[in-house]
């Protein structure tokens, strides 16, 4: 497996309990990055590697994905799918970046595609396959993702209080329309209207955000 130059990890406060798995002697005074340990582990036992990678990054990845898809359930499913493909398609054998970079890139890309599909259902889903994702994202595209989730956050904050409350109850707390209706003391159809309004406002706010160049970049590198 190809070694990637890794920058030393600065966050020594990070608990990272997985480090105890490493039985190789750690050089004194040198802080090892989790990535190196994962690499050694994957060379020996990919199954265990996948498991520890899951323990290490799952929560943070869900946290990241939810900024884009704004749904707890979708974010969890989406990240779990990335991990499943990582094991079943033996993606871990092919990646050229760090595991961390691969996972974040893939989760971002899938989140983006999900969002695009939700707000523009007419678009084709053919480009959603993310396997063989190239590491070479343009700097601007990398940064654009963060700007995108900030725009989404602004759009959500810009909703009317009623609309925002219904949206969050449904998407983050996973409540059914009927439950939301009871909680907000409105009718179920009113909840539905609020949800439709929330989505259409999101759609409106993000109109100019579907960066075509990024998508083309993905299509060319999907094998």
């Amino acid at each position: 497996m190809q070694q990637v130059p890794l920058n030393s990890d600065e966050n020594k406060g990070d608990p990272a309990p997985e480090r105890s798995i490493n039985r190789l002697p750690l050089q004194p005074g040198k802080v090892t990055d989790d990535e190196l340990i994962f690499r050694q582990l994957f060379a020996q036992d990919p199954k265990r590697g996948c498991e520890l990678l899951f323990r290490r990054y799952y929560t943070n990845l869900v946290n990241h994905a939810v900024r884009f898809v704004y749904s707890k359930e979708v974010a969890e499913d989406l990240v779990a799918e990335v991990y499943t493909a990582f094991w079943q398609d033996r993606v871990f054998e092919r990646i050229t970046t760090s595991y961390r970079a691969y996972l974040y890139q893939t989760v971002r890309h899938r989140s983006y595609n999900y969002l695009r599909w939700e707000l523009h259902p007419s678009d084709s889903l053919d480009s959603l396959n993310t396997q063989g994702l190239s590491s070479a994202l343009q700097p601007d595209e990398v940064l654009h993702y963060s700007e995108l989730h900030q725009k989404i956050e602004d759009a959500i904050q810009g909703l009317t209080p009623q609309c925002k409350r219904a949206f969050l109850l449904s998407r983050i707390e996973g409540k059914k329309y009927l439950e939301i209706a009871q909680e907000m003391q409105i009718s179920a159809s009113a909840v539905e209207k609020l949800m439709i309004r929330a989505l259409s406002q999101l759609r409106q706010e993000l109109k100019g955000e579907w960066f075509v160049s990024l998508l083309l970049g993905f299509i060319t590198c999907v094998c």
């Binding site: 990637v4 130059p5 890794l6 920058n7 990890d9 966050n11 990070d14 990055d33 990054y57 943070n60 990845l61 946290n63 990241h64 970046t97 760090s98 961390r100 970079a101 974040y104 890139q105 590491s135 994202l137 990398v142």
Partner: peptide
């Protein structure tokens, strides 16, 4: 790029 994702993870 690697550092970027490392900090992104820390930030998250």
């Amino acid at each position: 790029g690697e550092t970027y994702y490392q900090y992104l993870d820390e930030w998250e």
